[in-house]
Simulated assay, not measured.
Amino acid sequence: MSYCNLVHRLYSIFFYRRRRKVMLYNMMELLEVADKNNFAIPAFNVSDFAMFNGIMDVSERMCAPVICEIHPNELKHIGTDFIKGMISRAEASPLPVVIHLDHGATLANCMVAIRAGFTSVMIDASALPFEENVARTKQVVDLAHSAITYTKVTDDSDPRKTEDLKDRCDWHYAPSYHAMNVSVEAELGTIGVINEAEGTVDMAHIKYTNPDDAVRFAQETGVDCLAIAIGTCHGAYPHGQQPDLKIDVLKAIKKAFVENGIKTKLVLHGGSGNKVELLKEAARSGINKINISTDIKFAYYNKMYEILNADYDPEKKALKTLREPNAIQPECIKALEEVAAERIDWFGAAGKAKLY
């Protein structure tokens, strides 16, 4: 091998590894490492750039891989141009980052997200009969896994080079650094419903995920991640009404996936407000992603209420003085970061960015 070729090869490998450190990941890439190393990554729902920056900052301080989620309703509110800023911030970070659509209800929701630059989307058809859930999920999987661009590869030593025989021998094309297959998450089973106004939890609404159904669903859809129902609820639990999660159901599903050679990763929704030890056990027992929304938003907006309320004149029904966002939000972000840091520690994700 000539000196020039050797230098080129070393540069190519170095450049590839360097790019991977600052690159957006899809969910399967991110959770594959979590699964092999027996931890879970908190997926934080964000509604504005201040929240997003706070999650990125605390994750960087803790050297933790990060998943930032946006619900379709939130995406409609903030607009898809917001995603360009998220991508720019993520690509400047040393962390592996996933930008994920949470609870997409339709194919249109998912396509909007894919076109905007999300690296992972969820199609939630869990309220439909099994066969319809399979059909809708497979449709999104087929489309999302096709969301890839290609770049010309001329160097045989380039690690991006495809293993596909035709591409490798004839065309020398490989996945680009700047695009990837978009991962897909689905849900099987239903989680509980909290009536915050009445202070009640409807656990009867839960349909626990059946392990045999989960195996069949993963095999028929090819989905990358599967949210399972083991007893959690969306929202804030009324005082003293935290459920006991069915860790035995989780372990049975994980065992069935391993025995059937299924690579689909397991996800837990409704991670806010649950018993800490049960969440930790779930993270050790096969759950690789735990959704956190209510916990960080309560921290953020409760602090905002506290700050604004201190300046509120009840007689005039107005603020006594004008408060600019930069005088309000820093303390709110700090409160959010404190909660996020706890969850990163609980789930074993602190320090794990070095594994990527």
Rank of each mutant, 00 (worst) to 15 (best):
L143T: 03
Y177P: 12
A135N: 04
D170R: 12
M180V: 11
Y177L: 12
P159A: 10
D142K: 05
I194A: 06
C169M: 15
S176F: 03
L165T: 11
S146R: 05
L143P: 01
V140L: 00
G189E: 07
E187L: 08
H178I: 12
D142I: 02
K138V: 01
T151K: 03
A144T: 01
T149R: 03
V140F: 00
S183T: 04
W171M: 12
S146M: 01
D170A: 14
E187H: 08
K152W: 08
T137D: 00
V153W: 06
N181K: 13
T137F: 02
D167I: 11
C169F: 14
S176T: 04
A186S: 11
T162W: 06
Y150W: 06
C169K: 14
T154P: 06
P159Y: 07
V141T: 00
T137M: 00
A174M: 10
R168T: 12
D164G: 04
T190H: 10
I194M: 05
G189N: 07
P175I: 13
K152Y: 09
C169S: 14
V193D: 02
T137R: 00
K166N: 13
L165N: 08
E163M: 11
G192A: 13
P159Q: 11
K166T: 13
L188C: 05
L188H: 05
N195S: 01
D155P: 03
E185I: 06
H145S: 00
R136P: 02
V184L: 08
D170F: 15
E187R: 09
A135R: 09
Y173K: 15
I148Y: 00
D156Y: 07
V184W: 05
A144C: 00
A186H: 05
M180Y: 11
P175H: 12
K166Q: 13
G192I: 04
E185M: 10
H145C: 01
K152V: 08
H172S: 15
D158H: 12
L165D: 10
T154H: 10
E163T: 13
H172R: 15
T149W: 00
K161Q: 08
D156S: 09
G189K: 06
V182S: 05
L143K: 01
M180Q: 14
T151W: 00
D170Q: 13
E185L: 07
R136W: 05
V193F: 03
D142C: 00
A147S: 04
A144R: 03
V140H: 00
E187Y: 09
D164P: 03
G189V: 10
I148N: 02
T190L: 12
K166S: 14
A147L: 01
N181L: 11
H172T: 14
K152A: 11
V182L: 07
E185V: 05
A135C: 03
D155G: 02
M180K: 14
D164M: 04
Y173R: 15
S157T: 10
S183G: 08
R168D: 14
T151V: 05
A144P: 02
P175N: 12
S157C: 05
S176Y: 04
R160S: 11
